[in-house]
Design a protein around this nucleic acid. Structure first.
Lengths: 250, 250
DNA sequence: CTACAAGTTGACGCAGCGTCAATGTCAACA
DNA sequence: TGTTGACATTGACGCTGCGTCAACTTGTAG
């Protein structure tokens, strides 16, 4: 059996450009080249290609894959060192997220705005007067003190976590995931953990009832919905909350 | 005041090449260009450059910075959307780390090897016989059962966490951090959390005494030291453990 | 006036392909 | 057999953010 470059690309789920690139890189040569210069690939090449694509999906660079395919390194070894790279990347990212969050807060004008901002994302009340009206007269003070008690690092981490959670909802939703899918429910679990971080302020761990209450608030208030990509995003989160409340907080 | 490209680069802590690049990108023009083509920069340019470098450190791309500098977006807004990018990147990385860890385990030949591998990283005993001798006759069984009780995702996460921790030690050490520095002690805190994950097996949370014991083992056994970059790395971890044990587990 | 160090410039390189413009191939139709 | 149009295929350039380098200037010491 023999296929043209386009055929192989379709079968393996990649592009002809990529195949030519692998050819240049010495990763995968066509099994035959026609008199007209066209590349043709056989079944061995297809198998090899699929292995290459797997390693690429795992993030290995072409030189590493070349090594592996030449048998100088076994797959596991290459993946382990790759894993170390990924881990480093991750901590670098974590650090950067923390500094960016910190810088944002500094730019926004110092501690004064912090309680508001945090409350804004946390229980959707932006102004002190509103907080007091909605949550009781000393809620603002309690929250403000709690927030001030945190170090800069902790504040940044807290903010960053929420941003990450919101981003995850967004990508899950755009990827077509259902609000009761495992993926989304896993995000909710993290979200609940995050909410529980401030349980000292709100008085105890999240209950099913409270979680659904939050969901309603997210949908009802555009300032909060904005955190989740608008009304539709907030609605998605609310559905996920409801499901989670029923199945995991019962 | 006016400086040559090299002067400005040194003052701001960057390179002349970078400055020329920013020039081409329209980010930062020299305040004057000599008849010989040499670039000269004044104080305004220096101020602007420092702002640019700050945003770059936070990971903003040049086009984004151009926007910000043109006043089309304020800093905070740009950083918030950048933060979302970073958060997405992070979850992508998390997923990839999990898949790589999972793939590694699959390659290593299924469940059979898992208990060994995990024990290998966890308390340095590679072989069943050795485990039994060192930790008591049913330690291996307990550990094996505990490990088997985990889902694939959980196993992958567990492995990935340890790799990340080891990588963090390595980068901290190569960055010249002391074992009693805040950064390193924060890594130890995560390490302790990680060790506590298997407290059901080892019988209760880590104590100061046990932590130091682990440190000694890491240094003493090359198979384990390998996880932390060899003897020197293990020694570094041991020092960090000792400090942590005295100051945070007292 | 020479010799040499230090500075400056534009150009190429890199990773992993996406995206062309320029040709080539092939079946259908005249 | 010649034409046409739909698809394929190829090599080349582009992209990010600079590091690195060869070639050329400038300035200082002797």
């Amino acid at each position: 059996m023999e296929w043209s470059i386009q055929d192989i690309a379709r079968i393996a789920g990649t592009t002809s450009r990529t195949l030519r690139h692998y050819g240049e890189a010495g990763l995968l040569q066509p099994s035959r080249i026609g008199a007209n210069g066209y590349r043709y690939y056989d079944e061995d090449a297809l198998t090899r290609l699929q292995r290459i694509l797997l390693l690429r999906e795992l993030g290995l660079g072409i030189p590493s894959i070349v090594e592996v395919m030449q048998g100088e390194t076994d797959d596991a070894h290459a993946l382990v060192s790759h894993l170390q790279l990924l881990a480093q990347e991750k901590t670098r990212l974590d650090r950067q997220i923390a500094s960016v969050a910190l810088t944002i807060r500094k730019l926004k004008g110092g501690e004064q705005l912090m309680a508001e901002e945090m409350f804004d994302g946390f229980d959707h009340t932006t102004y002190q007067a509103e907080v007091e009206q909605r949550w009781g007269k000393d809620a603002y003070t309690r929250s403000d003190q709690w927030w001030r008690s945190k170090s800069d690092e902790e504040k940044a981490a807290f903010t960053a976590q929420h941003v990450a959670i919101a981003a995850d909802y967004a990508s899950a939703r755009s990827g077509g995931a259902a609000s009761d899918s495992d993926d989304v429910q896993a995000i909710v679990a993290r979200h609940v953990d995050w909410l529980n971080l401030s349980s000292p302020v709100t008085g105890g761990a999240i209950t099913a009832r409270r979680l659904v209450g939050y969901g309603d608030m997210y949908v009802g208030d555009p300032r909060f919905a904005a955190n989740y990509g608008g009304r539709d995003g907030a609605e998605f989160v609310r559905e996920a909350f409801v499901y989670y409340a029923e199945h995991s907080l019962a």
